[in-house]
């Protein structure tokens, strides 16, 4: 399987926070045979792979399996499905989307519509959308019909197709989680200098619940967290903060919204990449969140390195990433395992 095919296969699977089973099964089917694997209470997938040596303390590398999504709250009189938001979604990007309501093992298609511009009054079109005003339309006639199809608590995922785009790019749904999983799977297929524990986490979108408990179990000496990193690299879009760029390499983060990452690991990784001539970018601005903060404060505390995958239109079903960046990230991970193993010994 090529990297593109792997990403496509993973992003076609649906994994909403707390309901990641489809993605986990897909990952398990793609894992090489020489890995031991275990699914924990919350649904994290913990994979161990032997390397040439055992490090003094575990090296943990993680990617999350869940995607931002919606959850069914109830059905209104007209058969419209009211929902709440699970994860980091920009409500402004919700209207006009197609969704699957995942109910009783089925994917029921629906749409999120809003009243047409023809019937808006005055400057109503300039008013940003509120999630409270939105419903999912399954095409039902009345409340009873919709109530039979769906129940409160059902997950709702965005419909989208993943595939090649532009100049060696990929466009698709749930990329912010699945491309990281694909890169981690690629690492597990290689001969490693040290043992690693690869963790595919659940519920990252809703507060890193999975990572908190996974880190407790692994007790890593050092942790590498693969995340997507939003970029707005087209000046014409008018980003208010300086943004990393698509295609210029994985992003080493100094910080995110909730936390500052380990400075020593940051500089060592930067030096390593420079030595290996792998392009990297630095993110020092406080945007984005990730599983990193949850590992950092787990148990006695862990040194954390966050590696970001530049993502245009992140967290929407039309996310764009660069194959070049994903390849660079893959190329960086192998020597990084060596470096971390030496450091921990």
């Amino acid at each position: 399987m090529t990297l593109m095919e792997q990403i496509q296969a993973l992003s076609d699977a649906v994994g909403t926070p707390g309901d990641e089973i489809e993605v986990r099964r897909k990952i398990m089917s793609l894992l090489p045979d020489d890995c031991t694997r275990r699914t924990d209470t919350l649904g994290n997938l913990l994979v161990e792979k032997k390397g040439a040596q055992a490090p003094a303390k575990p090296i943990m590398i993680s990617a999350h399996m869940d995607e931002p999504s919606l959850m069914v709250e109830n059905v209104d009189m007209t058969g419209g499905v009211k929902f709440s938001v699970s994860g980091e979604i920009d409500v402004q990007t919700l209207p006009g989307r197609r969704v699957w309501v995942l109910s009783k093992g089925e994917r029921i298609p629906g749409v999120i519509g809003i009243k047409p511009i023809h019937v808006l009054k005055g400057s109503e079109i300039e008013i940003p959308i509120s999630a409270d005003d939105l419903f999912i339309d399954l095409g039902c006639e009345r409340k009873e019909e919709a109530s039979k199809l769906t129940n409160p608590g059902d997950s709702v995922a965005f419909i989208g197709e993943t595939g090649p785009f532009g100049d060696r790019l990929v466009r698709g749904r749930a990329l912010d989680s699945r491309s990281g999983c694909a890169v981690l799977l690629a690492l597990l297929e290689q001969e490693l200098p040290f043992d690693i524990t690869a963790v595919f986490t659940v519920q990252r979108e809703t507060g890193s619940t999975g990572m908190k408990t996974a880190a407790f179990q692994v007790q890593p000496g050092a942790a590498v967290v693969l995340e997507s990193c939003p970029v707005a690299d087209h000046p014409v879009l008018g980003a208010k903060k300086e943004s990393p760029k698509l295609g210029e390499g994985p992003i080493i983060s100094l910080r995110e919204q909730r936390s500052f990452y380990d400075k020593e690991l940051f500089f060592q990784c930067k030096e390593l990449a420079e030595g290996e001539e792998i392009p990297i970018q630095i993110k020092s601005a406080a945007f984005g969140t990730g599983d990193g903060a949850a590992v950092q404060t787990s148990g006695n505390g862990t040194r954390v390195l966050e590696l970001g995958i530049p993502s245009r239109y992140a967290l929407t079903p039309c996310c764009i990433q660069s194959l070049k960046d994903l390849e660079s990230l893959s190329a960086l991970l192998l020597p990084l395992v060596g470096m971390l193993g030496e450091k921990l010994s």
Binding site: D90, P95, F165, P230, S243, P317, I320
Partner: peptide
């Protein structure tokens, strides 16, 4: 109101349209 980050096709050549995405600034960077 609902164009941001949607998939489009640009029909320069009717048989092989070019996929695109309507540009969008995420809240973190706006």
């Amino acid at each position: 109101r609902l164009q941001a980050a949607t998939s489009v096709l640009v029909w320069g050549r009717p048989k092989t349209p070019i996929p695109g995405v309507v540009g969008y600034l995420p809240p973190e960077l706006d």
